[in-house]
Amino acid sequence: MSRLFLRSPEAVAGTIILALLVAMALAAPWLFPRDPLAIVGPAMLPPFQDWTLPLGTDRLGRDVLSGLFHGARTSLAVGLAAAATSIIVGVLVGTIAGFAGGWVDEVLMRITDAFQTVPGFLLALAFVSVAGPSLGVVVVAIALGAWTQPARITRAEVLSIRERDYVAGARVIGMHPAEIAFREVLPNALPPVLALSSVIVAAAVLTEAALSFLGLGDPNRVTWGGMIAEGRAVLRSAPFLSIVPGIALVLTVLGVYLLGEGAVEASAVKRGNA
């Protein structure tokens, strides 16, 4: 599996990009022990002028490189946590709806419909403005709009698995329906959802950036979205302030996509060989 995985160039590129990002996120407090929101030098210092501040400073004289590193922490943490939350909630709802059928399915799917008709970003926006911006709230806000897709995919998969002989076999030996749903059916319904997870992570990273851009991120943390928003006011005189975190954002999303693509391909090859 791992050999197959590393054979595809997408997977290799994605792995390298994400490994760098994770390294950045992990190394941030060690390389830049100072608060990234602290003022360290003259304001609007352009990049490559002062080697103690290689990427320069922003309007208030804060270190851009330090912000980039600490921002990677927030972006990755929020992106992964929101994606994990939405996948877990979606898979649970989808499994229960698909396996139970009847009115349970009907109720759960109408709720899913309701969430799907409202644009996810609007939902997140509304939720953060009511609950107040903090890391946990942002995670929940993003998950609120993202759980419906995994729920639908899981339900479709469960509906087909439910009719298979091994589910009948589990009933015949007297297995409890809850155990059948979560131990026999759910694990076998996961692969298509996991194939989608890279898209969900990438979307969550982008939504987080967008919320921060609008000033709805956690105010006590540096975020790439917040940095882009900061730079917007001086876009003509210091475009690098928006461009640098923008590039970081694009690379993150690209890395996640490539990695997901590679993983799906590798598992397809593996299945084809089996």
Binding site: R164, D165, A168, G169, A170, V172, G174, H176, P187, N188
Partner: peptide, 22 residues
């Protein structure tokens, strides 16, 4: 019903389909 199932069992045609693939 579940406890009765201990006394009434079934073997399917295709065991590969009748077993959880994992």
């Amino acid at each position: 019903l579940r406890s009765m199932r201990a006394r009434l069992q079934m073997v399917f045609q295709d065991p590969l389909a009748a077993f959880n693939p994992r």
